[in-house]
Design a protein around this nucleic acid. Structure first.
Lengths: 192, 192
DNA sequence: GGTATTAACAAACATTTGTTAGTTTAAAGG
DNA sequence: CCTTTAAACTAACAAATGTTTGTTAATACC
């Protein structure tokens, strides 16, 4: 039983890496099987279909994001504090599960009908909560009076490069990474 | 002659839209032909292969970015001014040619061997020039003393959402869009 | 008006795709 | 030791893929 979950997890992890590298459409079940170390047909003892793999990866990420949002919403502190904390957790998921995040970012469009709608709804829910923090901050005079949607997408998009680029040991620690990103997004690159 | 270029252009334009919507791997030549209004085989009178379409779209974008960089590098002004101008042109290409930019952002990985290397080199060249502006600005005391690579990718990534999200007539004009993005990236979301 | 060229088509190509069926191997349980 | 079961394999499937072929209709050129 634990062995079955193990092999399944290996397949899912390896799929995330391959999907990130070559895309969902660019990765065949035979490619994946080669990476896992078995024949393509054998994987069907552990997974239901290629689509199921994609679904698992996408919803693992969206569920985590939504859970983090709920946690931060119940924290005390200013809108700036909450935004900072949510952003910190958002970045952390990328650092810890970069491949899955990449799939959820880039390959979600290959989800089928029902699951596609579900995923888009989950993403919208996350964005709505994120936007509310920004809007409240603007209303409270904490933030600059920019368009909240523009701010939302600029911030969410700004951190997306992390899973593409960041490798620990590239001269930048995770801590410094977070700090510099926060500095730029909250205080700006220019000196006052 | 002009008609031939025309049909080819239609195919390329329609391909950009479809690749953006469904990805390179998710778009079949028959899909594309359906959109263009002819049979798949007929398109081969105008294009060499599916790969050639991808190459054209990707290099059209990378060439434009590099040309814009060269122009801005020769301008007079502070590093802040140059960075602002380069960013403005960067955003503008997205607004004017969003589908092609999307392909160059997301489907470049499907380029084959030689072309893949070329494209990665072009992208690196653009990033290097962009980074130099930031480094010079930091050295000159114009910018905050953040890690230049982090700043580079945060900024480049921050504007990537534009081609995914922005539609004129969504309550935000292109002008206001540019202004708000610049404000956030250069001055920060938080009030001082 | 005859001839070459362009651009469309239908049909077929070989390959690759995700997946299923049937079989074999090996470990686990009594 | 026998039976059961999980998990691997080989072989094959139908469908979809990018592309080539041969052919036909229309357009341009001398």
């Amino acid at each position: 039983m634990s062995k079955k979950l193990n092999k399944r997890q290996i397949i899912l992890d390896e799929a995330a890496k391959l999907f990130k590298l070559k895309g969902f459409g660019g990765t065949s079940m035979r490619d994946l099987a080669g990476e896992v170390g078995m024949e393509a047909a054998s994987m069907y003892n552990h997974i239901k279909s290629k689509d199921e793999i994609l679904e698992h990866l996408c919803f693992h990420v969206s569920n985590t994001y939504i859970a983090q949002l709920a946690e931060v919403e119940q924290m005390a502190g200013s809108n700036g504090d909450k935004l900072k904390e949510l952003l910190r957790r958002h970045i952390n998921l990328m650092l810890e599960d970069g491949a899955a995040v990449s799939v959820a970012n880039n390959d979600w469009k290959y989800l089928t009908d029902n699951k596609l709608e579900q995923f888009k709804a989950a993403r919208k829910q996350y964005e709505k909560g994120f936007a509310a923090l920004i809007e409240n901050g603007i209303a409270a005079g904490e933030f600059q009076p920019v368009n909240a949607s523009v701010a939302l997408f600029t911030i969410l998009s700004a951190v997306r490069w992390v899973e593409l680029w960041y490798r620990p040991g590239r001269g930048v620690t995770a801590q410094q990474l977070e700090e510099d990103i926060m500095t730029i997004l909250l205080n700006g690159l220019a000196k006052n």
